[in-house]
């Protein structure tokens, strides 16, 4: 009896303090949620008030344009293969921009990441410098460089390629250096002990360990870069985006061209997406079937 009562007095304070803690926690999460909702609502209203057309006014018209395009594409279905042939070179250009910029960006990203990883860096004192360079390169949106380069170099695929490669190098530099940090340093030490140069240590000691991860990130990047190169075409850098911009400005009666380009872009993106996720699966999980 005495035991039980003493146990009761023992649990009582614990229970009340636990309940108080739970309530405090609930209050905090409730407040966070409230602030978040408030921010969303206020932000939405601000954005809506600065918009050309209103949200609720535009909502019923959301499907107008797509349905017009679809209707016209269906109506002129016979012309579609012709459009595909006409705009195929532009699509190839967009894919080429993405591929070259991924290759170039990845190479620079590898160099930056190796120079910026503790334990691997060629000049350990300069690690912060190379990291800041990576951060800044990553922070520059492609459009900034693309527009400036279009002014200097004239329109075409090269400005877009350079712009995307610049950003890719920064983004890859960061991702790769995260991969590099998990590298086993023993092979590097072994190579160093037999007198290998820094580039030999990296090529033979580090690259074999990280290559699958690097490749997997590069594949993901390729997919991202296809979207980027399409969008840069829209602001004047050539490729399918540029053709799309011209096609949609023709307006009613010529929607079949825009529709054809929509289809090509969609198919390309989905295809690359599926292919890259398939190969990334292979690279990270090996050759066993998944799902």
């Amino acid at each position: 009896m005495a035991d039980i009562s003493s146990a009761g007095t023992g649990i009582g304070p614990i229970q009340t303090s636990y309940m108080a803690m739970v309530q405090r926690k609930r209050l905090y999460s409730g407040l966070t949620l409230l602030i978040f909702i408030l921010l969303m609502v206020v932000g939405f209203n601000t954005a809506a008030s600065r918009n050309g057309g209103s949200f609720w006014g535009g909502l019923p018209n959301f499907f107008d344009y797509p349905s017009e395009v679809v209707a016209e594409v269906v109506e002129k279905a016979a012309a579609l293969p012709g459009h595909f042939v006409t705009y195929f070179p532009a699509l190839i250009e967009t894919i080429n921009i993405a591929a070259v910029s991924t290759l170039v960006g990845t190479v620079f990203g590898i160099v930056l990441s190796l120079l910026g990883t503790r334990g691997l860096a060629r000049y350990p004192r300069l690690i912060p410098l190379f990291r800041r360079i990576t951060d800044v390169m990553r922070a520059v949106p492609e459009i900034v460089i693309a527009l400036v380069l279009i002014f200097v170099l004239g329109g075409g695929p090269v400005p877009a390629m350079l712009a995307i490669a610049f950003h890719t190098a920064g983004a890859m530099g960061k991702l790769f250096s995260e991969v590099n940090e998990n590298v086993d340093l023993k092979p590097v030490e072994g190579l160093r002990s037999v007198g290998a140069t820094w580039s030999q240590q990296m090529m033979l000691g580090v690259v074999p360990q990280v290559a699958p991860n690097w490749l997997s990130y590069a594949l993901l990047r390729f997919e991202v870069n296809i979207r980027a190169s399409a969008i840069l075409g829209f602001v004047g850098a050539g490729g399918i985006g540029y053709e799309l911009k011209n096609a949609i400005s023709w307006g009613q009666g010529r929607f079949d061209v825009a529709g054809a380009i929509f289809i090509m872009l969609f198919v390309t993106i989905v295809l690359v997406d599926q292919l890259s996720s398939h190969y990334r699966d292979l690279l990270t999980h090996g050759r066993q079937a998944k799902d």
């Binding site: 939405f44 954005a47 809506a48 600065r50 918009n51 050309g52 057309g53 209103s54 949200f55 535009g58 909502l59 018209n61 959301f62 107008d64 344009y65 797509p66 979207r227 399409a230 969008i231 829209f234 985006g241 799309l244 949609i248 929509f262 872009l265 969609f266 993106i269 989905v270 997406d273």
Partner: peptide, 28 residues
């Protein structure tokens, strides 16, 4: 999900601009 991702921001932007006009809400 695959469809929405595949259509891509560029095409969505064009479609949305037709419905909601130019401005930050369309971009959002």
């Amino acid at each position: 999900f695959d469809f929405v991702r595949g259509v891509d921001a560029l095409i969505w932007t064009i479609i949305l601009t037709r419905a909601f006009g130019l401005g930050p809400l369309t971009g959002a």
